[in-house]
Simulated scan of single mutants.
Amino acid sequence: MNFATLDLNLLRVLDALFREGSTVKAASGLAMSQSAVSGALSRLRHALGDQLFIRQGNRLVATDYAAGIEAGLREELERLEALLAPQAVFDPQTAKGTFRIAASDFFAELLMPPLADLLQKSAPHLRAQLVDLVPTDYVTSLERRNADIALIPDLPLPEWVNREPLFYSPFYVIAREGHPVTAGLGEGMEMPMDVFCALHHVLFSPEGNLAAMGDAALHRVGKSRQVAMTVPVFSGVCRAVSESDLIALVPAQLASKVADTFRLRVFEPPMKIDPALIIGIWHKRSDNTPMANWMRKQVFTLMKALD
């Protein structure tokens, strides 16, 4: 028998013949004609190389070969039925599983603490993992199931990736408390352009790039800045600023969150920088997966509160 060419619908007919012992009754149960069932039995005999049933009066009696596969066939059909049945209603209180979020360490500060509190209260058996966001590999991480969602700046995506806008992130300038040059500036004031350009900067860049959105905004007004250091994580940017006379442009939500922790002062930048739109992306294959769908909703609701 060549299983690759076997019509699996024939196995339903075989199971019905086991149950009913009659082509007429099997046909009625399957909503088929008797001739169609007889034709299916003929194909099964040919495919399996056995008579399968012998007529004994008005009843079909299974051959020894057929009797030997009856119980196993029924178990496999029941297993397939269970596998393909609609999934049970998702209950976060009892559900177990792991949900992976690919994102920068920005979200370690702004997402993971409230998500931890939410999961402890609403879904105590679910596990959330924040995994490294590879800047050139957002989409592949979803395709290879290394992440369930990724939180990224808006960009073009393949058609099999879904997206949801979450929040706009403006930029603030941060400097350490007691910085000799910024000491005379009031909290929240716009940093003068000459000060901004004269001071040395820390730049967040996982790839080690020496320019970013702030540099493009400066270029539009004919200015430039001095990047003294690049760091691949936002926590490192904030730490470097807090312990030196370097300054940095960071997302406004992050600056507000960590200013007290790192003893930072926060200022408006001297040039217009379009806020970055942060989106959540996921593979369309998990659109209707109960746990993934529930977790996406929780994460996205927490993130939209940052707008």
Rank of each mutant, 00 (worst) to 15 (best):
Ala240Gly: 08
Ala240Phe: 05
Ala240Ile: 06
Ala240Glu: 12
Ala240Leu: 03
Ser242Thr: 00
Ser242Pro: 09
Glu243Asn: 10
Glu243Thr: 15
Glu243Met: 07
Glu243Tyr: 00
Ser244Lys: 03
Asp245Cys: 09
Asp245Gln: 14
Asp245Met: 01
Leu246Ser: 08
Leu246Arg: 04
Ile247His: 09
Ile247Thr: 06
Ala248Thr: 02
Ala248Ile: 01
Leu249Met: 09
Val250Ser: 05
Val250Met: 02
Pro251Ile: 03
Pro251Arg: 02
Pro251Gly: 14
Pro251Glu: 03
Gln253Cys: 01
Gln253Ile: 02
Ala255Cys: 04
Ala255Glu: 06
Ala255Lys: 02
Ser256Leu: 13
Ser256Thr: 08
Ser256Asn: 09
Lys257Phe: 09
Ala259Met: 12
Ala259Lys: 15
Asp260Phe: 04
Asp260Tyr: 00
Thr261Trp: 04
Phe262Met: 13
Phe262Ala: 09
Leu264Phe: 04
Leu264Pro: 07
Leu264Cys: 05
Arg265Leu: 10
Val266Cys: 07
Val266Phe: 01
Val266Thr: 14
Phe267Val: 05
Glu268Ala: 15
Pro269His: 12
Lys272Phe: 13
Ile273Val: 15
Asp274Asn: 08
Ala276Leu: 13
Ala276Tyr: 00
Leu277Asp: 02
Leu277Ala: 14
Ile278Asn: 13
Ile279Phe: 05
Ile279Pro: 01
Gly280Thr: 04
